[in-house]
Simulated scan of single mutants.
Amino acid sequence: MHAWEAIQKSVDYIENHLTEDIPIDKLAETASLSPFYFQRLFSRLVKKPVCEYIKLRKLAQAADDLKTKNTRIIDTAVNYGFSSHASFTRAFKEVYGITPDEYRTSDVHLNQFVKPELILNYVMVDENVPLVTDGIVLEVTRRQLAIPRIFIGIEKEIPIKELMGGTETSISYAAKLWNEFHEIKPKIPHLIEHGNEFGALYIGNAKEGYCTYMAGAEVEYGTSAEGYSTFELPAAEYIVCGFEAESFEELTNSAVYKAQTFMERWMKKHKLAATDFAGEMYYPTEGCAYLEHWVRSVTTD
Protein backbone atom coordinates (compact mmCIF):
# COMPACT_ATOMS: atom_id res chain seq x y z
CA MET A 1 0.00 0.00 0.00
CA HIS A 2 1.28 3.46 -0.88
CA ALA A 3 1.62 6.01 1.92
CA TRP A 4 -1.12 8.19 0.44
CA GLU A 5 -3.48 5.21 0.35
CA ALA A 6 -2.92 4.59 4.06
CA ILE A 7 -3.68 8.21 4.91
CA GLN A 8 -6.72 8.20 2.60
CA LYS A 9 -8.12 5.29 4.62
CA SER A 10 -7.88 7.42 7.75
CA VAL A 11 -9.43 10.42 5.97
CA ASP A 12 -12.35 8.23 4.87
CA TYR A 13 -12.72 6.89 8.41
CA ILE A 14 -12.88 10.43 9.81
CA GLU A 15 -15.58 11.40 7.31
CA ASN A 16 -17.72 8.44 8.33
CA HIS A 17 -17.40 9.14 12.07
CA LEU A 18 -17.69 12.92 12.38
CA THR A 19 -20.32 12.71 15.11
CA GLU A 20 -18.08 10.48 17.25
CA ASP A 21 -14.93 10.88 19.27
CA ILE A 22 -12.04 9.96 16.93
CA PRO A 23 -8.90 8.83 18.80
CA ILE A 24 -5.51 9.22 17.12
CA ASP A 25 -4.69 5.61 18.01
CA LYS A 26 -7.72 4.37 16.07
CA LEU A 27 -6.79 6.41 13.01
CA ALA A 28 -3.21 5.17 13.16
CA GLU A 29 -4.51 1.61 13.38
CA THR A 30 -6.74 2.23 10.36
CA ALA A 31 -3.69 3.40 8.41
CA SER A 32 -1.52 0.55 9.75
CA LEU A 33 1.00 3.04 11.10
CA SER A 34 2.38 4.00 14.49
CA PRO A 35 0.62 7.03 16.07
CA PHE A 36 3.82 9.07 15.78
CA TYR A 37 4.50 8.33 12.13
CA PHE A 38 0.79 8.54 11.25
CA GLN A 39 0.53 12.11 12.56
CA ARG A 40 3.67 13.20 10.72
CA LEU A 41 2.52 11.65 7.45
CA PHE A 42 -1.04 12.98 7.80
CA SER A 43 0.18 16.56 8.28
CA ARG A 44 2.49 16.22 5.30
CA LEU A 45 -0.14 14.88 2.88
CA VAL A 46 -3.30 16.63 4.09
CA LYS A 47 -1.52 19.92 4.92
CA LYS A 48 -3.18 20.10 8.35
CA PRO A 49 -2.47 18.46 11.72
CA VAL A 50 -4.94 15.64 12.22
CA CYS A 51 -6.75 17.21 15.20
CA GLU A 52 -7.21 20.51 13.35
CA TYR A 53 -8.43 18.66 10.27
CA ILE A 54 -11.03 16.76 12.33
CA LYS A 55 -12.28 20.02 13.82
CA LEU A 56 -12.58 21.65 10.40
CA ARG A 57 -14.50 18.71 8.94
CA LYS A 58 -16.82 18.57 11.98
CA LEU A 59 -17.53 22.29 11.57
CA ALA A 60 -18.12 21.85 7.83
CA GLN A 61 -20.72 19.16 8.42
CA ALA A 62 -22.24 21.09 11.30
CA ALA A 63 -22.58 24.14 9.03
CA ASP A 64 -24.41 22.00 6.48
CA ASP A 65 -26.75 20.71 9.19
CA LEU A 66 -27.52 24.25 10.34
CA LYS A 67 -28.94 25.02 6.88
CA THR A 68 -30.59 21.70 6.11
CA LYS A 69 -31.91 20.39 9.43
CA ASN A 70 -34.44 21.92 11.80
CA THR A 71 -32.42 21.31 14.96
CA ARG A 72 -31.30 23.64 17.72
CA ILE A 73 -27.78 25.01 17.55
CA ILE A 74 -26.94 23.41 20.90
CA ASP A 75 -28.07 20.02 19.58
CA THR A 76 -25.87 20.45 16.51
CA ALA A 77 -22.96 21.45 18.74
CA VAL A 78 -23.30 18.42 21.00
CA ASN A 79 -23.78 16.10 18.02
CA TYR A 80 -20.34 17.06 16.72
CA GLY A 81 -18.58 16.82 20.05
CA PHE A 82 -18.60 20.41 21.30
CA SER A 83 -19.16 20.75 25.03
CA SER A 84 -21.46 23.78 24.89
CA HIS A 85 -23.22 26.32 22.71
CA ALA A 86 -20.49 28.81 23.63
CA SER A 87 -17.57 26.56 22.63
CA PHE A 88 -19.24 25.71 19.32
CA THR A 89 -19.98 29.37 18.57
CA ARG A 90 -16.41 30.35 19.44
CA ALA A 91 -14.91 27.68 17.16
CA PHE A 92 -17.36 28.43 14.34
CA LYS A 93 -16.67 32.16 14.39
CA GLU A 94 -12.92 31.61 14.63
CA VAL A 95 -13.00 29.53 11.44
CA TYR A 96 -15.65 31.37 9.37
CA GLY A 97 -15.81 34.87 10.86
CA ILE A 98 -19.53 34.52 11.52
CA THR A 99 -21.57 32.93 14.34
CA PRO A 100 -23.73 29.82 13.79
CA ASP A 101 -26.87 31.86 14.45
CA GLU A 102 -25.85 34.54 11.93
CA TYR A 103 -25.06 31.84 9.38
CA ARG A 104 -28.33 29.98 9.84
CA THR A 105 -30.43 33.12 9.37
CA SER A 106 -28.56 34.46 6.32
CA ASP A 107 -28.04 33.42 2.69
CA VAL A 108 -24.27 33.36 3.16
CA HIS A 109 -22.26 30.50 1.64
CA LEU A 110 -19.05 29.27 3.25
CA ASN A 111 -15.73 28.10 1.88
CA GLN A 112 -15.00 24.82 3.61
CA PHE A 113 -11.86 22.77 4.18
CA VAL A 114 -12.70 19.93 1.81
CA LYS A 115 -12.14 16.24 2.45
CA PRO A 116 -9.14 15.52 0.20
CA GLU A 117 -8.94 12.80 -2.43
CA LEU A 118 -5.22 12.08 -2.34
CA ILE A 119 -5.39 10.00 -5.50
CA LEU A 120 -5.63 13.31 -7.41
CA ASN A 121 -2.09 14.13 -6.27
CA TYR A 122 -0.60 10.82 -7.41
CA VAL A 123 -2.58 9.38 -10.33
CA MET A 124 -2.36 10.88 -13.83
CA VAL A 125 -4.56 10.16 -16.86
CA ASP A 126 -4.20 11.08 -20.51
CA GLU A 127 -6.42 13.49 -22.41
CA ASN A 128 -9.95 12.21 -23.04
CA VAL A 129 -9.61 9.56 -20.33
CA PRO A 130 -12.10 9.97 -17.44
CA LEU A 131 -10.91 9.69 -13.85
CA VAL A 132 -13.50 8.57 -11.31
CA THR A 133 -13.00 9.28 -7.62
CA ASP A 134 -15.34 9.64 -4.65
CA GLY A 135 -18.49 10.25 -6.65
CA ILE A 136 -17.06 12.69 -9.20
CA VAL A 137 -15.84 12.17 -12.76
CA LEU A 138 -13.07 14.34 -14.26
CA GLU A 139 -11.79 14.47 -17.83
CA VAL A 140 -9.25 16.76 -19.52
CA THR A 141 -9.60 17.66 -23.20
CA ARG A 142 -8.34 20.27 -25.64
CA ARG A 143 -11.03 22.46 -27.12
CA GLN A 144 -10.70 24.73 -30.17
CA LEU A 145 -13.04 27.72 -30.01
CA ALA A 146 -13.47 29.04 -33.56
CA ILE A 147 -15.85 31.92 -32.79
CA PRO A 148 -15.54 34.18 -29.70
CA ARG A 149 -18.33 34.00 -27.12
CA ILE A 150 -19.68 36.94 -25.14
CA PHE A 151 -20.89 36.86 -21.53
CA ILE A 152 -22.58 39.72 -19.69
CA GLY A 153 -22.98 39.99 -15.94
CA ILE A 154 -21.54 41.67 -12.87
CA GLU A 155 -18.05 41.67 -11.41
CA LYS A 156 -16.37 42.30 -8.07
CA GLU A 157 -12.99 41.97 -6.48
CA ILE A 158 -12.57 38.86 -4.34
CA PRO A 159 -9.64 37.83 -2.12
CA ILE A 160 -7.08 35.70 -3.94
CA LYS A 161 -7.02 33.35 -0.95
CA GLU A 162 -10.58 32.38 -1.89
CA LEU A 163 -9.05 30.76 -4.97
CA MET A 164 -7.53 28.29 -2.56
CA GLY A 165 -10.96 26.70 -2.36
CA GLY A 166 -10.93 23.58 -0.25
CA THR A 167 -7.96 24.71 1.84
CA GLU A 168 -9.17 28.06 3.19
CA THR A 169 -12.25 28.71 5.34
CA SER A 170 -14.24 31.92 5.07
CA ILE A 171 -17.42 33.44 3.75
CA SER A 172 -17.61 32.80 -0.02
CA TYR A 173 -17.64 36.14 -1.86
CA ALA A 174 -17.94 34.37 -5.22
CA ALA A 175 -21.12 32.60 -4.11
CA LYS A 176 -22.54 35.92 -2.91
CA LEU A 177 -21.79 37.44 -6.32
CA TRP A 178 -23.61 34.59 -8.07
CA ASN A 179 -26.64 35.15 -5.85
CA GLU A 180 -26.66 38.83 -6.84
CA PHE A 181 -26.24 37.92 -10.50
CA HIS A 182 -29.19 35.52 -10.52
CA GLU A 183 -31.39 38.29 -9.12
CA ILE A 184 -30.60 40.62 -12.03
CA LYS A 185 -30.09 38.02 -14.78
CA PRO A 186 -33.69 38.27 -16.15
CA LYS A 187 -33.07 41.98 -16.89
CA ILE A 188 -30.04 41.35 -19.13
CA PRO A 189 -30.92 41.83 -22.82
CA HIS A 190 -29.97 39.47 -25.67
CA LEU A 191 -29.49 36.39 -23.46
CA ILE A 192 -29.13 33.15 -25.42
CA GLU A 193 -31.94 30.79 -24.46
CA HIS A 194 -30.52 27.80 -22.54
CA GLY A 195 -27.06 29.33 -22.91
CA ASN A 196 -24.17 28.77 -20.54
CA GLU A 197 -23.43 30.76 -17.43
CA PHE A 198 -19.75 31.66 -17.04
CA GLY A 199 -17.49 32.70 -14.19
CA ALA A 200 -14.43 34.62 -15.41
CA LEU A 201 -11.42 35.08 -13.15
CA TYR A 202 -8.66 37.57 -13.95
CA ILE A 203 -6.52 40.22 -12.26
CA GLY A 204 -7.88 43.28 -14.09
CA ASN A 205 -7.53 46.39 -11.95
CA ALA A 206 -7.94 44.55 -8.67
CA LYS A 207 -5.93 45.75 -5.70
CA GLU A 208 -3.10 43.74 -4.19
CA GLY A 209 -4.25 40.46 -2.69
CA TYR A 210 -7.44 40.44 -4.78
CA CYS A 211 -8.55 39.42 -8.26
CA THR A 212 -11.55 40.27 -10.42
CA TYR A 213 -14.38 37.75 -10.72
CA MET A 214 -17.30 38.12 -13.12
CA ALA A 215 -20.49 36.07 -12.93
CA GLY A 216 -22.35 36.21 -16.22
CA ALA A 217 -24.42 34.48 -18.88
CA GLU A 218 -23.98 34.11 -22.61
CA VAL A 219 -25.51 36.68 -24.95
CA GLU A 220 -25.71 36.99 -28.70
CA TYR A 221 -22.32 37.80 -30.19
CA GLY A 222 -21.74 41.48 -30.86
CA THR A 223 -24.22 42.74 -28.27
CA SER A 224 -23.62 44.66 -25.06
CA ALA A 225 -25.68 45.99 -22.17
CA GLU A 226 -25.13 49.30 -20.44
CA GLY A 227 -24.50 49.06 -16.73
CA TYR A 228 -23.19 45.50 -16.85
CA SER A 229 -19.75 43.95 -17.23
CA THR A 230 -18.82 42.16 -20.45
CA PHE A 231 -16.32 39.33 -20.92
CA GLU A 232 -15.25 37.95 -24.29
CA LEU A 233 -14.01 34.37 -24.43
CA PRO A 234 -11.56 34.69 -27.34
CA ALA A 235 -11.29 32.29 -30.27
CA ALA A 236 -8.35 30.08 -29.28
CA GLU A 237 -7.35 26.59 -28.14
CA TYR A 238 -8.21 25.81 -24.52
CA ILE A 239 -7.41 23.15 -21.98
CA VAL A 240 -10.77 22.12 -20.56
CA CYS A 241 -11.29 20.04 -17.44
CA GLY A 242 -14.87 18.84 -17.33
CA PHE A 243 -16.30 17.28 -14.21
CA GLU A 244 -19.65 16.22 -12.86
CA ALA A 245 -21.06 15.49 -9.44
CA GLU A 246 -24.29 14.20 -7.96
CA SER A 247 -25.64 17.64 -7.09
CA PHE A 248 -24.97 21.32 -7.82
CA GLU A 249 -23.97 21.86 -4.18
CA GLU A 250 -21.37 19.09 -4.43
CA LEU A 251 -20.23 20.44 -7.80
CA THR A 252 -19.55 23.97 -6.55
CA ASN A 253 -18.03 22.95 -3.21
CA SER A 254 -15.73 19.95 -2.93
CA ALA A 255 -15.87 18.88 -6.59
CA VAL A 256 -14.65 22.21 -7.95
CA TYR A 257 -11.69 22.15 -5.56
CA LYS A 258 -10.78 18.57 -6.49
CA ALA A 259 -10.99 19.37 -10.18
CA GLN A 260 -8.82 22.46 -9.69
CA THR A 261 -6.25 20.39 -7.79
CA PHE A 262 -6.07 17.81 -10.56
CA MET A 263 -6.04 20.42 -13.35
CA GLU A 264 -3.07 22.28 -11.86
CA ARG A 265 -1.10 19.05 -11.53
CA TRP A 266 -2.10 17.85 -15.01
CA MET A 267 -0.90 21.08 -16.61
CA LYS A 268 2.38 21.02 -14.71
CA LYS A 269 2.95 17.42 -15.77
CA HIS A 270 2.42 18.44 -19.40
CA LYS A 271 4.66 21.53 -19.01
CA LEU A 272 1.79 23.96 -19.47
CA ALA A 273 0.87 27.13 -17.58
CA ALA A 274 -2.31 29.23 -17.59
CA THR A 275 -2.18 32.66 -19.21
CA ASP A 276 -4.27 35.72 -18.45
CA PHE A 277 -7.57 34.31 -17.17
CA ALA A 278 -9.48 31.21 -16.16
CA GLY A 279 -13.15 30.45 -16.63
CA GLU A 280 -15.88 28.26 -15.18
CA MET A 281 -18.46 27.13 -17.75
CA TYR A 282 -21.76 26.03 -16.16
CA TYR A 283 -24.17 23.78 -18.03
CA PRO A 284 -27.93 23.49 -17.49
CA THR A 285 -28.40 19.80 -16.77
CA GLU A 286 -30.84 17.31 -15.37
CA GLY A 287 -29.58 14.66 -12.99
CA CYS A 288 -25.83 15.03 -12.44
CA ALA A 289 -24.47 18.60 -12.38
CA TYR A 290 -21.71 19.44 -14.87
CA LEU A 291 -19.05 22.17 -14.96
CA GLU A 292 -15.92 22.87 -17.01
CA HIS A 293 -12.71 24.75 -16.17
CA TRP A 294 -11.41 26.62 -19.23
CA VAL A 295 -7.84 27.96 -19.45
CA ARG A 296 -5.60 29.18 -22.24
CA SER A 297 -2.13 27.80 -21.81
CA VAL A 298 1.48 28.35 -22.80
CA THR A 299 4.33 25.87 -22.82
CA THR A 300 6.84 26.14 -19.98
CA ASP A 301 10.50 25.12 -20.07
Rank of each mutant, 00 (worst) to 15 (best):
L163I: 02
E139H: 00
E168K: 15
I154G: 07
S106H: 03
E162K: 04
V132E: 15
P116H: 07
L145A: 06
T99H: 00
L138T: 04
V129K: 12
H182E: 15
W178H: 06
R143M: 09
I98S: 01
A175S: 08
I98E: 03
Y96V: 00
W178K: 11
V129Y: 02
K161Y: 14
T167N: 08
I98T: 06
N79M: 10
Y96L: 02
V137F: 02
E139A: 00
I98L: 04
G166Q: 05
A86L: 09
E183F: 12
S84W: 11
R104Q: 09
V125D: 03
P186W: 13
L120A: 10
Y80R: 08
A77E: 04
I136Q: 02
Y122Q: 10
Y96D: 02
F82H: 06
A146K: 14
I136K: 06
Y173Q: 13
A86M: 11
S170Q: 03
I188C: 05
E180Y: 09
V114S: 11
E94G: 01
P100S: 03
F88T: 03
N128H: 08
E162T: 02
N121V: 02
Y96P: 00
S170C: 09
L145D: 08
D126G: 14
L145N: 11
A175V: 06
T89E: 11
P116E: 04
H182M: 15
M124Y: 13
P159C: 08
I152K: 01
V140M: 14
K93H: 12
